[in-house]
Design a protein around this nucleic acid. Structure first.
Length: 405
RNA sequence: GCCGGGGUAGGGUAGUUGGUCAUCCUAUGGGACUGUGGAUCCCACGACCCGGGUUCAAAUCUCGGCCCCGGCCCCA
């Protein structure tokens, strides 16, 4: 038996890698157009960074280990905490708001299934240092722009934990947590059982789950959170972003404090969530000043599962030559590469002329640039279109023009 | 961690009531073909997921493990 790759990891073939890189670059281009700058953080962190906000319980889902110096280390399971740690360590005096994006691999020790791997990639954004609704609306609009740019139709749902917690205010914290969990799972029956003794809370919560924004304000009153959501409605209308209000969104995370949102795409089975985010307070947990922030992360692998955008074809040229003119062939290849930036291959296997053409076909070359004694005598090359079979002896500069289309 | 389905050359497969040398397609390398590829033909290459058990004999039956697929739990 040959060596296997670890469970839940993947290899990517050249075609897959090309597509992944292309989609990544499109997302990156949008983030940069919106004025966001890229950051990188370590692949592993002290485990504490992840347990501090989520408790020891999450260690079970981390790739965590002791290093040779006895330090408790964990591979990052997400990037919001590392980026906020970095903000506190390195950027806390940078002018606010700070607009950051990242694209990195993350690791979770979980049972792999469709759209869920032990190593996976996240493209995310953190908008640090503004608690205003304009910031939240921008984060949502940016997420929507990225997803739609790569041709994915997704449903966007926005909720608000402040509103929900307001309703649950009188319950003890354990009850609150359980209620939020059931709500996130859309387990209305379970909620009914849990809140059987608090019928007032139960009625209001169940009403809220189905409520739109205007109904919500009659259930919980004109609170600040409701007012914020109404402002956001106006802003998102200006952005042209369509969404649904869903107070049932709880996001398993404790650190979200206000607005939360999720995006779902069809065709992904049980793991249909492709993006999640919201407003959180983490900086002070990591020893920084209180800094209102919001952000989101897109599940890159899930997005790729349903993304049908294909990278544009980059023309490939094979220099095909007769054995007595290797030097000239190499010179032509160099001029195609360095001079013209064309993707160019040349035989390095000692193949005969006919075999070289055959191989050029096999690797999907778009053109063959043929170099032989006749071409050299004429100071030209023969450009052969591998698809049509048409060929013509022309100058190298003209050949480049045609190759580039 | 739990439930179910699955694992035969690089990819796709036949064979599974145990019994010659494990089938075919494709891909790959070479040749027929010394300045013209895609066709055809020939040759080569290459597999029973791993380990234990039953048996004269295991790809086939059995147990354990690993991995893949779908779902549950979870999803910070």
């Amino acid at each position: 038996m040959k060596l296997q790759r670890p469970r839940g990891t993947r290899d990517f073939t050249p075609a897959e890698t090309e597509k992944r890189r292309y989609i990544e670059n499109r997302m990156r281009a949008i983030a940069e157009k919106w004025g966001y700058v890229e950051v990188k953080t370590p692949t592993f962190e002290n485990s504490e960074l992840f347990t501090i906000k989520s408790g020891e319980a999450i260690l079970g889902e981390l790739y965590a280990f002791k290093d040779k110096g006895g330090r408790e280390i964990a591979l990052r399971p997400e990037l919001t905490a590392p980026v906020l740690r970095m903000y506190v360590n390195e950027m806390s005096v940078s002018p606010k708001p700070i607009k950051l994006y990242y694209f990195e691999n993350c690791f979770r020790y979980e049972r792999p299934q469709k759209g869920r791997f032990r190593e996976f990639w996240q493209f995310g954004v953190e908008l640090i240092g503004s608690g205003r609704v304009e910031a939240e609306a921008e984060a949502i609009a940016l997420a929507a722009a990225m997803v739609s740019d790569i041709g994915i139709e997704a449903d966007l749902c926005i909720g608000h934990l402040g509103v929900v917690r307001g309703v649950l205010h009188d319950l003890d914290s354990q009850m609150q947590a359980e209620a939020m969990r059931l709500m996130d799972k859309k387990d209305l029956e379970g909620l009914g059982v849990l809140l059987a003794d608090d019928s007032d809370v139960k009625d209001r919560l169940l009403a809220l789950i189905d409520a739109d924004l205007d109904e919500a304000s009659s259930i919980v009153g004109e609170t600040g959170a409701i007012e914020q959501l109404k402002q956001m409605r106006t802003l998102l209308d200006h952005y042209g972003v369509e969404y649904k209000v869903d107070f049932g969104i709880a996001r398993g995370l404790d650190y979200y404090t206000g607005m939360v949102f999720e995006m779902y795409a069809a065709g992904l089975g049980a793991q249909n969530q492709i993006c999640g985010g919201g407003t959180y307070r983490l900086a002070q947990l990591f020893g920084g000043a209180e800094t209102p922030s919001c952000g989101f992360a897109i599940g890159f692998d899930r997005v790729l599962e349903v993304c049908e955008v294909e990278p544009p074809n980059k023309p490939t040229v094979a220099v095909v030559y007769l054995p007595d003119v290797v030097e000239d062939a190499i010179r032509v290849a160099s001029r195609l590469r360095e001079g013209a930036g064309v993707r160019t291959t040349i035989d390095i296997s000692g193949r005969k002329f006919g075999q070289q053409l055959k191989h050029a076909d096999a690797i999907g070359a778009d053109y063959a640039v043929i170099v032989g004694a006749q071409e050299i005598a004429a100071g030209m090359v023969t450009l052969r279109d591998m698809r049509t079979g048409e060929q013509e002896m022309i100058g190298l500069a003209d050949a480049v023009l045609r190759i580039r289309g």
